[in-house]
Amino acid sequence: MFLRAVRSEFQKILTVRMWWVLLIVLVGYVAFTSGLLAGVFGGLGDQLASSGGNAPDITDAALPPIIYSIASSIGYVFPVLFGTLATTSEFRHQTLTPTFLAQPHRGTVLGAKLVTLAVFGALYGIAALVASVGLGASILSATGHSTALGDSDTWALLARVVLAMAIWAIIGVGLGALIPSQVAAIVIVLAFTQFLEPILRLMTSLADWAAGIGQYLPGAASDALVGSSIFTSMTAAASGAQSLEWWQGGLVLFGMAIVAAGLGYLTSWRKDVT
């Protein structure tokens, strides 16, 4: 019965256009950003460093992980939006009615949605990596830098990017169930991820006592899980930002996903469908 529910959720996603529209934007955005970074640091980094300017202090060995992890450090908002939209559209188009008629056990439906979106989040992660590694590594090798693709640490990092993207999609489903209004949910996701959290991470990194809190912010936990991020390398050099171990970051992020989904189930998901 659970498998049927999962197959139904897969069909729901694949029979409307949203999944590939978001995917194209994600791949384009990640390709552009990682290409730009690889070009700037790979092509100009040497000149900037030798001229003694204020270029960020990024060593040659740190460069490939930073560029590859653009897939999640910048791209993570896409699986969140995907999960949120997939859930809120059920409220918006009143499709919870036929959904709960076909499968009256609502917990089963939510579980199937979480599993399905986790799979799509992972697929988004792979697609984003194709963009960031594909373009990033080409530019790095063209400018005479190491691509680090022979290093098993690099591949472990790529795997953790995929895991992070899957968890972000689950967080999206939970948020969608918590905030059934589609417009409100999108505004909150974008405002938090693109504006509020970067500011909070920067501010918490300025004081020691706050840095301990800042590392538990979802974006910071995600970057800790992946193990590298343009954001942490830009601020860590200049400030005292702390970071969790990768597995701690993963647990924090997954915990947030489970709490959001659980609260969503207890609030809107169990409500009367009128």
Binding site: R4, T15, H93, T99, A102
Partner: peptide, 22 residues
């Protein structure tokens, strides 16, 4: 209430819920 996703075809609409209900 018209409980349809406007971007989904009628065939897919029925098939989504038919799958869930076996």
């Amino acid at each position: 209430a018209s409980s349809f996703h406007p971007g989904r075809s009628a065939r897919h609409h029925l098939s989504v819920y038919g799958t869930a209900a076996g």
